[in-house]
Nucleic acid binder design. Structure first.
Lengths: 204, 204
DNA sequence: CAAATTTACTGAACACTGTTTATTTTTCAA
DNA sequence: TTGAAAAATAAACAGTGTTCAGTAAATTTG
């Protein structure tokens, strides 16, 4: 009987429809400003219907987050190609920061927003981000092995590199660099120089 | 006639009462989860009364933010005492990160939350944060002058140091370091080691 | 094919939120 | 004591996430 299979397809199609609308609106207006009623209106269903396909608003975010991490990982796969680990480290940093600056709302969803992976959360979530982090760790351990960077401990190095990248992106996304009184147009340039300088400083 | 003066006093007292309650609740429950009705209930007034003393909820946050920056600056004044600029840089970093980790909700208000200093905002706000940032810049320029750190440009260095500090605190506050699978109890230690390592790496 | 049952969907409600306004209460000078 | 000015509020508005009883459609059964 193909009916139950068609129903399964229908269900997944509906989930995708909701998710696509949600993602689009999260990116355009941000997570907080997007209401379930707006999403429902967009897909021309009642708000209550969404709850038949997703537990709550956070689950919607959770799914969008998954896709976002996939996007970032794809970007890494595309842009991070160098064999030399230090060169690769540069590519990782640039790719990360560029991704964050180019997709600020997406970055917000992934790393700045509170819900839903907030502290008390299940660990399976971490499959999402752990790919990229493992990638970084791998790269850094090669750098250390070949004595290309001044760090000794891989974990501390990874923490530093990630914190630097995240710090740059998130301070920019939240406009905190305003305190530096730079030209708006220069800022992105300065951030890129900044990470370039970081790589230079930490390498032998 | 001392009546109008007493009224002025009364008004300021009321403002302070509201602000104190707001601050307390922001720190306990976070900005988003604190409603004006809750604040009003706490001070035993109607919600509408708050609007006689503050324009909106953001203005409340704005004022709390001011106090938070004062607190951070006080902390700097207390803890950052070394004459040697590199030693002072260490103290700045430790003080910043320790403050952030010890006052996570406050840090959230200052640097992570969206409202109210979001991008389109008046510049006078920046008196708040610019003290601390100027302090960092001063310290770094001395470090560079005395060839104690491997940076050449003060602004790039400042950007890096701040991004590192903010990155460490904000990733921790938002539980993103979970991906590293460390013991909860170890995490704070590792963060401190991490910034220690950073200082070591960037200095000659 | 018709009736019964399962599935899909929705309107309306609940308990909230920030904010505004008309109304009441209080204060204080004449 | 009265009348105007100031302070406080109740009630409403428009919005939120979420739940649930009830309707409409699709499917299975007799």
């Amino acid at each position: 009987m193909g009916i139950s299979e068609r129903k399964e397809r229908d269900k997944q199609e509906m989930q995708k429809r909701i998710l696509d609308a949600a993602m689009k609106m999260f990116l355009e207006e941000g997570y907080e400003k997007t209401s379930l009623r707006n999403i429902a209106e967009k897909i021309e269903y009642s708000p209550a219907t969404i709850y038949l396909y997703f537990k709550d608003k956070d689950e919607l975010l959770y799914e969008v987050q998954k896709q976002a991490f996939e996007q970032l990982n794809e970007e890494f796969a595309k842009k991070v190609t160098a064999v030399n680990p230090l060169e690769r480290l540069k590519q990782i940093c640039y790719t990360y920061v560029t991704f964050g600056l180019a997709n600020q709302e997406l970055y917000d969803l992934m790393f700045i927003i509170r819900a839903p992976m907030n502290c008390v959360n299940d660990d399976d979530m971490w499959e999402n981000g752990s790919d990229a982090f493992g990638f970084l760790v791998q790269c850094l351990s090669e750098c250390i092995e070949q004595k290309l960077i001044r760090y000794n401990d891989v974990m501390l190095a990874a923490m530093n590199v990630w914190a630097m990248g995240h710090g740059l992106v998130s301070l920019d996304v939240r406009c905190r660099f305003k305190v530096m009184q730079l030209e708006e147009s220069d800022l992105e340039n300065v951030i890129n120089q900044s990470i370039h300088e970081f790589i230079r400083v930490i390498s032998y």
